[in-house]
Simulated scan of single mutants.
Amino acid sequence: MARLISRRAVAVTFGALVLTLAGGGIAAAQTTTAAKPAAQNGQPGDRAAAPAGQPQVTAAEAAAAKAALTEGVSPSFINGSTSFAVVSSTGVLLRSRDAVSATKYGPGQYQVIFNRSLTKAAFLATIGTTDHCCVPQAGEISVAPRLSTPNGVFVQTYDSAGVPADRPFHLAVFTP
């Protein structure tokens, strides 16, 4: 008996359907966030926000990021590498590999600049302690590429209720 549809075709069709439905759910969820107050959307109170909810990049910040990008790149970046940053709740860069600066913009809003391009990188962040003791306060964290800054990462931290809150964090950057 001949098979009309292969298992692979069924799996691909099912996967496409799932992704389509998941994408629609994300789009519907996104439209409801616009009704939240600015503080819950992560918008900074004293700086104009870009469309993605990040503070606008100033000319001085862009120049500093560009200078950090050209400071020198170690040979380990040729075949991929892992960089990291440990940042305090006040925005101080405490420990790092390849991170050159951290900036705090507002409640729970941080920027971390690295000495290399991160355009093809993956980011992983977690709320973490900055000392050698204790468990950190509970909270949530999100991470994204920094607008108009190819070597920057934007991090937002929240309390357990989803309200922007200052939290120390650990950030890992993986490049192919």
Rank of each mutant, 00 (worst) to 15 (best):
A2K: 09
R3D: 07
R7E: 11
R7Y: 05
R7V: 07
R7G: 11
R8M: 01
A9F: 03
A11L: 13
F14H: 13
F14N: 13
G15L: 15
V18W: 09
A22W: 11
G24I: 04
A27H: 13
A28K: 07
Q30A: 14
T31D: 10
T32C: 02
T32G: 05
A35R: 15
A38E: 12
A38N: 12
Q40H: 12
N41E: 15
G42Y: 05
A48Q: 14
A52C: 09
G53W: 01
G53N: 11
Q56K: 10
A59T: 13
A62I: 00
A62N: 03
K66Y: 01
A68D: 08
T70P: 01
E71R: 03
S74W: 06
I78L: 13
N79K: 14
N79L: 14
S81N: 13
F84E: 05
T90R: 14
R97L: 12
D98Y: 11
D98I: 00
D98R: 05
V100A: 04
G106I: 07
G106L: 03
Y110H: 06
Q111T: 14
Q111N: 12
L118A: 03
L124G: 08
A125R: 00
I127H: 02
D131R: 10
D131I: 09
C133F: 10
V135R: 07
E140L: 15
A144P: 02
R146C: 03
L147E: 10
T149V: 14
N151R: 01
V153W: 01
F154G: 02
T157I: 02
T157D: 04
D159E: 05
G162F: 06
A165V: 06
R167V: 05
R167F: 00
R167I: 02
F169W: 08
H170T: 13
A172S: 15
V173N: 05
F174I: 14
F174G: 09
F174C: 07
T175E: 12
